[in-house]
Design a protein around this nucleic acid. Structure first.
Length: 427
RNA sequence: GGAGGGGUGGCCGAGCGGUCUAAGGCACCAGUCUUGAAAACUGGCACGGCGCAAGCCGUCAGGAGUUCGAAUCUCCUCCCCUCCGCCA
């Protein structure tokens, strides 16, 4: 959500930003609705002021026993009441129109974001590690996993449907090991671990920006107002919804494990094989709350924390800055981490680290009180995967594979797997 | 799921149809006094919106209603507490 003041004072800046995003957001409608609402609101308040004066007078006259005069004023107020009611209906309708429109306007990109229509305009910042070379044709994880007996898509389809997976034996243990490994790593660098609900209400989803625009991407629990979390960003960011935090307590850095559930509407035919795009996947998420002055330094801290996971696992990756046309709705700037996947011979997204500035904080009403005193200000929120577990599992299988189909377990994970050094065929 | 009790400013807490412009206390800030501090005293001290401003409007968990007028009356919802039932 953008500041109302900004809409009124810098409409050109917003129009330019929306154009850079390739957004068709109804900004002109929003401006017009805001203008109409202000007019109606001023009229309503003038009528209410008049009624308040009259009502007070009725009370004063009654107190003095001048009942006839009081009755005269009262009957005048009855007529005024009808006008107030009518004005209120109009002002409320306009206020709702403004509120609905401003919830579908995306965030403004930061000035350092490359301008472009889609992912081809993304800027590669740097890369780490060398893609491994093989003296055989590297296999994809959807071949390796089932051959090892640790990945089972047929049975997943039987119990749930397409875009689900079953992990057996060492596969299931590896999934669990990755979660624990990542949480331990982040806890060791100052993140506070938090365990949160996997179902959230619509207020939370509005707060982080999934609603009202992207409801089709969510799983909704029939007969309730609850949704399955599409990312831990939603429950974790909303932990402080409606709160005012002390500046001295910032930055706050939280990490959380949750499964994530996404309807993946409209992605038919894309990444249908393997674990890449699932309705359910595990993720360790990082969320920061920061002051406006420090949020871009925090974005670097967040990105480095996500990178550290890949480095510890020895997985080659690169960091890209998303272009204006490729960024998410709530983000002002996003760094994607892309891990090398030998099976597809390309880099694929494994983490997305964003500074949402005050966009979510406005929607969720999250503020901080400056140490120097003064009124509370909206803080900045950031979030990033650290990392997506399923895609990490894919990267391990594909990067650490051998010609015989076995897979080396990265050293950093062995303590979490009872010292297991190599995945070999099961059953 | 059933029964009962509650939700008022940063905190405690009064108010139960009309100067509520929300008492009082605590905490906090400033000042007086003091070598300094404490104490005492004086003053200040919620948030949001509209407006150039003066100012006005709104907010007593949320919503709807009754009324000239609602923190106060009615209805609905949410949340918290206690007990019962069920349950990992």
């Amino acid at each position: 959500m953008l500041a109302r003041e900004l809409l009124r004072t810098s409409p050109d800046r917003i129009r330019a930003a929306l154009a850079a995003r390739g957004s068709d957001a109804p900004f002109a409608e929003l401006l017009a609705a805001d203008s109409r609402w202000r007019e109606a609101q001023a009229e309503l308040e003038a009528l209410k002021a008049e009624r308040n004066r009259g009502s007070k007078e009725v009370g004063a006259l009654l107190a003095k026993g001048r009942t006839e005069e009081a009755e005269k004023v009262r009957s005048g107020m009855v007529k005024l009441g009808a006008r107030v009611a009518a004005a209120e209906v109009e002002a409320t309708a306009l206020a709702e129109a403004v509120g609905a429109l401003e919830l579908v306007i995306p965030n403004l990109p930061h000035e350092t974001v490359p301008v472009g229509p889609d992912e081809t305009a993304n800027r590669v910042e740097h890369s780490w590690g060398e893609p491994p070379t093989f003296d055989f044709e590297p296999r994809s994880h959807w071949d390796l996993g089932p051959a090892l007996g640790i990945l089972d898509f047929e049975r997943a389809a039987k119990v749930a449907g397409a875009r689900f997976a079953v992990l057996w034996g060492a596969g299931a243990a590896l999934e669990r090991a990755l979660v624990t490994f990542m949480l331990d790593l982040h806890r060791g660098t100052g993140y506070r671990e938090v365990y949160v609900p996997f179902l959230v209400n619509s207020d939370a989803l509005i707060g982080t920006g999934q609603l009202p625009k992207f409801g089709a991407d969510l799983f909704h629990i029939e007969g309730t107002e609850l949704y399955l979390v599409p990312t831990a960003e939603v429950p974790v960011t909303n932990l402080h919804r409606g709160e005012v935090l002390e500046e001295a307590s910032l930055p706050r850095r939280y990490c959380a494990y949750t499964p994530c559930f996404r309807a993946e509407a409209g992605s038919y035919g894309r990444d249908v094989r393997g674990l890449i795009r699932q309705h359910q996947f595990d993720k360790v998420e990082l969320v920061h709350f920061a002051t406006p002055e420090t949020s871009y330094a925090e974005l670097e801290v967040l990105t480095k924390a996500a990178e550290s996971v890949l480095r510890r696992l020895g997985l080659p990756y690169r960091v890209v800055t998303l272009s204006t046309g490729d960024m998410g709705f709530a983000a002002a700037k996003t760094h994607d981490l892309e891990v090398w996947l030998p099976g597809q011979a390309c880099y694929r997204e494994i983490s997305s680290c964003s500074n949402c500035e005050d966009f979510q904080a406005r929607r969720a009403d999250i503020k901080y009180r400056p140490s120097a005193g003064g009124r509370a200000r909206f803080l900045h929120t950031l979030n990033g995967s650290g990392l997506a577990i399923g895609r990490t599992l894919i990267a391990i299988l594909e990067n650490y594979q051998h010609a015989d189909g076995t897979v080396t377990v990265p050293e950093a994970l062995r303590p979490y797997l009872g010292g297991l050094e190599r995945l070999v065929p099961e059953q």
